[in-house]
Design a protein around this nucleic acid. Structure first.
Length: 428
RNA sequence: GGAGGGGUUCCCGAGUGGCCAAAGGGAUCAGACUGUAAAUCUGACGCGCGAGCUUCGGUGGUUCGAAUCCACCUCCCUCCA
């Protein structure tokens, strides 16, 4: 299937410039494109995965991707569809985040061959532009009338109780300048981004035409949404990050594994490189089968492998296998040690230092955020230690719950809270 | 600089002297049902095993008693200059 047709079949094309002609333009010859990522944290999260994988899709199709990290724009803050003005981060912090993101982004692209990827940082061409030059050469091309008409800032302008600073309002100009600059430096002629970036992208298209007399294009991808309307990418424990130190491969794998049926085939198209026909076939197969679909597992495997490589995937699968196949009693001592290394949440406590209550212990271990939740779970027999449910009466008696004779291999206690939370305690 | 309107527990949003740890909705967590899914129902949802303790932008004050009244401060919004 032709590249652009494939993107459309995956549902990855939300809007493009040039309407009908876009496809012909794209298939005409290899193009140079870019996508920007602002440093708003010390890691990217799965929200950035769609555009990141999109760059890779383009590269695999023979186009040259430029991954831009927003060392400059990150200092300003993108107001697009944000309800509130945000606090500025210090240059120091932003520059640290920039270097983290660079490393993360580069793992998804290839830096070899004809379509070798390029890494760029917009601070390189904005840091030394003085205000007057910027206002005269760049700002003059923007009509405030047009800018305030953009949907992306509309709620900030119209909404009661909100507002927008000049700083954030200028963001669009800064990003537009990036496109013009990348066009000049690298011959970049396409910018891609999430659908919330449409306003910024068209701003760049206009500016490039005015400053460089060049016609460039834009393409946006849909925002990832869930069928039940809740926010994608967040759980109780927070954001799902790409950094293994912030979200372990196991937690990452589990996140994808619990995708709702209503979303899973869409996500397979968004987040994996499996062909659309394979995904459709899988959907067909799942529909004919009784019980649990295979799709979630395929999704979890594919995405975990993409982000955390085979090593991370294997670790995640080892834990999942051991914890959710009802065979935890059969685990050997070395298996248990491996689970901990693989990223199963675990901690070591000295027997003499066990706290007075289970609520305290499980809260300290990070299984829950408050003792109340443990109490609630205890009342429903939802706390299980080495296969044995613990009751409210045992709360004040951890010594009994973690008695040596109920330990696995003399010191291990697999503690579950609910169906999904597992923690390995080593009591010595 | 002037006039007015706001800042409530993760989010939205009620509450204008005691009945308020604070309505309602959302999110989240746990249970039942299932398939580590969805939907539905149930429970929890500031912290604490508990007695109890700490909250309603901040600091003081009035009062037996304040999220609610007063003063000052701070941040945000709207309009005027």
């Amino acid at each position: 299937m032709a590249f652009f047709q494939d993107l459309k079949a995956r549902g990855l094309v939300f809007q493009t410039t040039g309407d009908e002609q876009f496809e012909a333009w794209l298939s005409d010859k290899p193009r140079i494109l870019y996508c920007g990522f602002d440093p708003t944290a010390d890691s990217l999260h799965i929200g950035s995965l769609v555009p990141l994988l999109m760059l890779r899709r383009f590269q695999l199709a023979g186009h040259t991707p430029i991954a831009l990290v927003g060392g400059a724009t990150g200092l300003i803050g993108d107001p697009s569809f944000k309800a509130h003005e945000r606090a500025l981060n210090t240059p120091d912090v932003v520059s640290k985040w920039v270097s983290r993101l660079r490393t993360q982004m580069s793992q998804f692209l290839s830096f070899e061959g004809d379509a070798s990827a390029v890494m760029a940082n917009n601070l390189d061409w904005t840091a030394n532009v003085d205000v007057l030059t910027f206002l005269r050469d760049v700002g003059k091309h923007f009509s405030v009338n047009n800018m305030i008409a953009k949907e992306s800032v509309k709620q900030r302008i119209e909404r009661e109780g909100a507002g927008i600073s000049f700083t954030e309002f200028t963001y669009m100009i800064l990003q537009s300048f990036d496109f013009a600059e990348l066009n000049k430096r690298y011959g970049c002629e396409l910018q891609i981004g999430g659908s919330d970036q449409w306003g910024n992208i068209t701003g760049g298209v206009d500016l490039t035409r005015r400053m460089n007399s060049a016609q460039v294009q834009g393409l946006t991808m849909p925002l990832v949404t869930k069928a039940d309307g809740t926010k994608f990418g967040k759980t109780e424990s927070g954001t799902i990050w790409l950094d293994a130190k912030k979200t372990s491969p196991y937690a990452f794998y589990q996140f994808w594994l619990s995708t709702a049926d209503a979303d899973v085939y869409t996500f397979l198209k968004y987040f994996t490189f499996l062909s659309v026909s394979d995904i459709d076939a899988l959907e067909q197969e799942d529909a004919e089968r009784e019980g649990r679909p295979q799709a979630q597992m395929v999704l979890a495997q594919e995405v975990t492998r993409l982000v955390h490589t085979d090593v991370g995937l294997e670790a995640a699968e080892r834990i999942t296998q051991a914890m959710f196949n009802g065979e935890e009693g059969a685990l050997s001592e070395s298996d248990l040690a491996q689970l901990s290394l693989d990223g199963l949440p675990s901690s070591t406590v000295a027997r003499a230092e066990l706290p007075a209550t289970l609520t305290q212990l499980l809260t300290d271990a990070g299984m829950v955020t408050s003792g109340k939740q443990v109490k609630d779970a205890l009342g429903r027999s939802a706390v299980v230690i080495n296969g044995k449910p613990v009751s409210v009466d045992d709360n004040a008696n951890p010594q009994k719950c973690f008695a040596i004779d109920s330990a696995m291999h003399g010191q291990y206690f697999i503690t579950r809270l609910g169906k999904k939370k597992v923690h390995l305690f080593t009591v010595v």
